[in-house]
Design a protein around this nucleic acid. Structure first.
Length: 415
DNA sequence: TCTGGGGTCCTAGGACCC
DNA sequence: TCTGGGGTCCTAGGACCC
């Protein structure tokens, strides 16, 4: 299989090119650049079309930021100061106060995301969605896909995306998804890298283990404890040694990954497993002292999840809560119920029961509500009828009359 | 001045069933 | 007194990714 990994760079203001910019936060809507322009320079009707004309002075700065937000993404100029994704904005403000702070605008991202993916599927239909700004493509069967090792097709996709959106895009091309993802990082932003199997030792092995998609901070630390820092050092470990120290499954995967082996196919369709909503409070809350605030937030989270389920056409039957205490410890509780639902009242009731099973003496920082074991709402009747019927038939076929009859009552409690 | 929100997948123990 | 093996479902926690 030949794979592409493409990710777009979501920077839309040409006048900010080369400047330190961070995107994040989101609570301070008054920071929205267009809103502020229309308030302070009302003689012009500022719209999306005028983004390139916005004077630099009108962009808010990171300096003085107060709040719990984190950085979603940052320009390369900002990263020079040591700021980057997932860093707290207040810490970033210390490192780079002059950086421009833009709020996250999910509606806008979704719009650009759809456009970007639409363009790609027109050219190469086998696309795997990996989030708002990233995709894998299998271009083995795309006409002309093999020219210059895929570079020609990559340039075509880059140009089409830029023409339609003004966004730049980094692309990695390799024999599989693992290597394509690593290749896409070689030449950012707006670059194309082609990595062949023969390049493994020269281009992949010198990289830190952390560059492998699937090795996070914990695994990196453990490897480091064994003196393993680069992918080459990882590849040099005997397979049996990795199995012994990292388990049968993860150890084998580590060994394969270090040797550039990956046979995962491109997955073009997938069903959601769960849906959730969570919120970090502006200040830590106490279950008793802030009971009303917390109760209202809790109800709202349930309503939001219910609305998400309904909008997307799903029901679920495992309902749970997530709490993060002021010491950052996370606990979860969930409960499966008999009937699938997307009813906010049912969610609130069951989630409320879950909440009773956790320690509420510590102050809370975050509260979340989750629904799992999802089913398409349209398949609800089908599952109730044929699902149960089939299991009954199977039971009778395998064990005769011994317990087939008593099952009948259990399987159709409401019919 | 600590550290968002929305996901997936894996592990592991216990209940329960055959 | 000691004792199987396989399977599924449920729950809790944790690593990781975008």
């Amino acid at each position: 299989m030949d794979a592409f990994y493409a990710s777009v760079e979501l920077l839309r203001y040409p006048q900010l090119k080369g400047l330190p910019v961070v995107i994040g936060g989101g609570r301070r809507r008054e920071d929205d650049v267009l809103a502020r322009l229309n308030r302070e320079l009302p003689e012009r009707d500022w719209t999306e079309a005028d983004l390139a004309d916005i004077p630099l002075d009108f962009f808010p700065r990171l300096q003085g930021y107060a709040g719990r937000g984190v950085i979603t993404t940052a320009t390369y100029a900002a990263r020079q100061f040591g700021v980057g994704s997932a860093m707290g904005l207040m810490k970033a403000a210390k490192l780079c106060p002059q950086a421009i702070l833009l709020p996250v605008d999910f509606d806008q991202y979704r719009h650009y995301s759809r456009t970007f993916k639409g363009i790609i599927t027109e050219i190469a239909p086998l696309m795997e969605d990996r989030g708002v700004d990233e995709v894998y493509i299998d271009f083995t069967e795309v006409p002309g896909g093999q020219r210059e090792g895929g570079r020609v097709l990559a340039r075509l996709i880059q140009k089409a995306i830029h023409d339609a959106t003004g966004l730049t895009c980094s692309i990695g091309v390799a024999p599989n998804k693992l290597l394509a993802k690593m290749a896409s990082e070689f030449n950012k932003p707006n670059g194309i890298s082609v990595v062949y199997e023969a390049d493994l030792a020269r281009r992949i092995w010198p990289l830190p283990c952390r560059k492998i998609n699937g090795i996070g901070p914990k695994a990196e630390a453990r490897l480091s404890g064994h003196g393993i820092h680069t992918i080459g050092e990882l590849a040099a470990q005997p397979r049996d040694w990795l199995l012994a120290h990292f388990g049968k499954s993860y150890g084998a995967w580590l060994h394969d990954a270090a040797h550039g082996r990956d046979d995962r196919p491109i997955v073009t369709e997938s069903e959601p497993v769960s849906m959730s909503r969570e919120t970090t409070f502006e200040r830590d809350l106490h279950a008793v002292r802030d009971r009303e605030t917390l109760g209202a937030l809790f109800t709202r989270l349930c309503e939001q999840v219910a609305a998400d389920l309904q909008r997307k056409g799903y029901v679920g039957r495992t309902i749970g809560v997530k709490l993060r205490y002021d010491n950052f410890k996370i606990v979860t509780r969930d409960q499966s119920i008999e009937h699938y639902t997307a009813d906010p009242k049912v969610l609130r009731q069951v989630a409320g029961q879950c909440l009773k099973r956790v320690d509420l003496s510590r102050k809370l920082r975050l509260l979340g509500v989750r629904v799992g074991t999802l089913l398409r709402a349209g398949d609800l009747g089908v599952a109730a009828a044929t699902g149960s019927g089939l299991s009954l038939v199977a039971a009778e076929a395998s064990s005769g009359l011994k317990w087939g009859h008593e099952q009948t009552d259990l399987l159709f409690p409401d019919d």
